[in-house]
Design a protein around this nucleic acid. Sequence first.
DNA 1: TCAATATTAGTGGTCTGACCACCTCCTAAT
DNA 2: ATTAGGAGGTGGTCAGACCACTAATATTGA
Lengths: 216, 216
Amino acid sequence: MSVQPTEKVYIEILKQIKAIIVEDGLQAGDKLPSERELSDRLKVGRSSVREALRSLELLGLIETRRGEGTFIREATGHRLVEVLASFILNDNKARHDLQETRHIVIKDCVELAVRRAESATISKLTNLIEQMDTNEQEQVHRACKQFEKIVIQACGNHLLYRLYVELTGYGSSLQRANSYWSRAFCEEVLTLLQSKDAVKLTSLLSKQNDALNAIE
Amino acid sequence: MSVQPTEKVYIEILKQIKAIIVEDGLQAGDKLPSERELSDRLKVGRSSVREALRSLELLGLIETRRGEGTFIREATGHRLVEVLASFILNDNKARHDLQETRHIVIKDCVELAVRRAESATISKLTNLIEQMDTNEQEQVHRACKQFEKIVIQACGNHLLYRLYVELTGYGSSLQRANSYWSRAFCEEVLTLLQSKDAVKLTSLLSKQNDALNAIE
DNA sequence: TCAATATTAGTGGTCTGACCACCTCCTAAT
DNA sequence: ATTAGGAGGTGGTCAGACCACTAATATTGA
């Protein structure tokens, strides 16, 4: 009889691990006890510990480095979208949604960035623009990507930034490559960031979106 | 030297499982091959298969029933929400980002909805408003939530909608409850949707955000 | 014949112990 | 002092063994 639902061990382990993190006051970047030690401390098999850790890893909450150990990641670094989408992303509609969502998130980030960008960020961007004064296409390309990333990060919202990263990640795994910012575009953005002209920046971005949509 | 990153086995298994789902045309509710069969078919240890399956389970993508098998679920990131939330709880920055991102996503959805909402949607919303003519608080509350959901869905972008769901999910498992739309707010939104007044709608939403931020 | 019961095969859940590959750190030889 | 090598710790993977549970099957009893 009976049938006590008996929480699965690996779920119980998740709670224990969380307790350990709290008790020991572990922060992002800190090392968790080794799998064998956890297995010992919690009186469960190592395989169960691993099932729990693998789950947390897939969620992006921890990071494991072979030969070194298991480490806590930043709290907001979840692979939510990545995994969900990879299991959902089969039809064309989903792809279109993906592109659209990516553009929207970029727009949101930039709109926040124009309000929050600090002078340090601006000078970093200025620097990047200068680096584009070269004939090497490869270097220009790299600088543009870096420029885009820094602008997005300047939104000051880590979760939103992660969304951008994830959405861009999928994109690259699809057939059509993602669009990157051109040098001219970067320069325009920098100017508008400096003048804190949110309105023009918004219209600039939506103009680019329209152009991209037209291509499809 | 070298050090080819060599994708971890359980990650590879995730892909394989996805491939099996696609090949066999499995739908939500269907049964996956057993752990032992997967282990056989993919030529990997059963424990590795389990690590992959446990991860998917934690994400809410599959459901396992002892003695029966493993089944595909409708993709509602159910458990994911709990786990993530419990790991994010003590990080104030993360919480703020979460709230902000949620507001932004809602704004994005509504802005798309105002351009895409069909008449069928509008009449559904009108209907809901009428249902609010009652003294039962519970019913009004339910109608408001439903109203919000329909508006969000009207954005026509499923990925964006899912983001909203996930973000709202986290929020509700945190201490502070999420803010819901009031009846008056719903009525305003409906009016603006009908008149397709995107500008006023945007300002209405940001006004609400500011009010909420002031409370904190 | 038919219903209740016992058996059995199949499934997930867990543990153990064994390797392997890799990293770090310490030691000993140069 | 520098460097090469080894030892020990860590995650990665596998195989095999039980257990608990479910459902389909076979057996039994009326």
